[in-house]
Design a protein around this nucleic acid. Structure first.
Lengths: 208, 208
DNA sequence: ACCTGAACACCGTTCAAGT
DNA sequence: ACCTGAACACCGTTCAAGT
């Protein structure tokens, strides 16, 4: 079968789910595509270019058809949760996304939607843009950590043991007191808490 | 000269400044240390272990001697700015840090300080921990992007041209209006704006 | 136009052997 | 105990040659 850019991206995303970002190599991808090693370089000028196409594919249809007549903060929370879901949809999706810093169509559509929402709420363009950056940083960093935690062996038991061993009662009383409030067991509540902090901060920009 | 862990870490950090994270290889490091290729594996069990030691070295002395008698939000802003400065102190410092997810002494000390600050302000342990996560995500993601932007060729001129070419007046009116408010020319103001949003959100947890 | 074959210049890691 | 020498099993990328 003839290769197309879309087919290469689709197979690469499936391979990503299977092996993870650090084992996603051009040679393994060629195997999965049933071609010889250099073939993908006719369709993508570099591995980086392929990764960016994969990242943008992750965001397909992200901010489509928002419900009308909702308050801005519920819409913004909705868009942020959609971004999170998109990044969670593939293994290492957040790291894939944050490695691609160039303007791709779906990422631009996401940004346009969020900035427009905040401008509509009453922020000037600079504040709306910078607040969007803050929201986006938050979502991407949160999902990055979620996916790193998910990749730990033993569902993170070893990591928790290492943390317990490293925590000293006299040096880390507060961290010890929060030992059962780690992010990992409560990913959704943890995400919503931080999101609500940022949205509350933005709300303060409007009334203040 | 005999190798020590500290010497390996120090030379590796200098090499990081020189070549960047993606060209920091065990072979280049061996050259810089004037030893043969496998030698560092006697001191660090893997490249990952070395990178984690480097990441923690970055944070040395981070939250030491905070000024007393200050309001919690100024102290929290101070600690966040110190974290930013520590990550900025070496090329790709933010990516180095976010790649090391295991509990290291200076990272724990930072977390203990920030959680303690927020507990002192009146948050319960869970909220203080989760708010600290939000602040830390923000700082790390912000510096990650700062350092990616700094690594662009032509001081980002090509990237800006690509953005201008990708922006469509009818599809991206808000992004176009914000074209001169990108993060890159105003890194400090951009950082402080997002930080103040998160801190205002935390403040709302106390009075609400 | 699209892909293969084969090479170039690298990687991280291991480990017997040296000192 | 600490390091060398040499190998193993890979990488991304390029490009003449094929079809």
């Amino acid at each position: 079968m003839r290769l197309t850019r879309d087919h290469v991206v689709a197979v690469a995303l499936d391979l990503l789910d299977e092996v993870g970002l650090e084992h996603l190599t051009m040679r393994r991808l060629a195997d999965a595509l049933d071609v010889r090693n250099g073939a993908t370089y006719w369709h993508f000028r570099s591995k980086q270019a392929l990764l960016e196409a994969m990242a943008d594919a992750l965001l397909t249809g992200l901010p489509a058809d928002l419900p009308a007549g909702q308050p801005w903060d519920e819409l913004a929370a909705d868009v942020a949760r959609r971004l999170r879901r998109a990044l969670l949809s593939r293994r290492d999706g957040a790291r894939l996304f944050s490695g691609s810093f160039f303007p791709l169509p779906n990422a631009l559509a996401y940004g346009e939607t969020m900035v427009g929402l905040l401008v509509g709420a009453g922020l000037d363009h600079r504040s709306a843009t910078w607040a969007t950056d803050t929201l986006t940083y938050y979502v991407v960093a949160h999902v990055t950590e979620e996916q790193l935690a998910a990749a730990l062996p033993d569902s993170g038991k070893d990591a928790r043991n290492r943390l317990d061993a490293a925590l000293d009662p006299t040096e880390h009383p507060h961290l010890l007191a929060a030992r059962d409030d780690l992010a990992a067991p409560h990913p959704n509540a943890h995400f919503d808490y931080g999101l609500s902090l940022v949205l509350a901060g933005i709300r303060g920009e409007l009334t203040g």
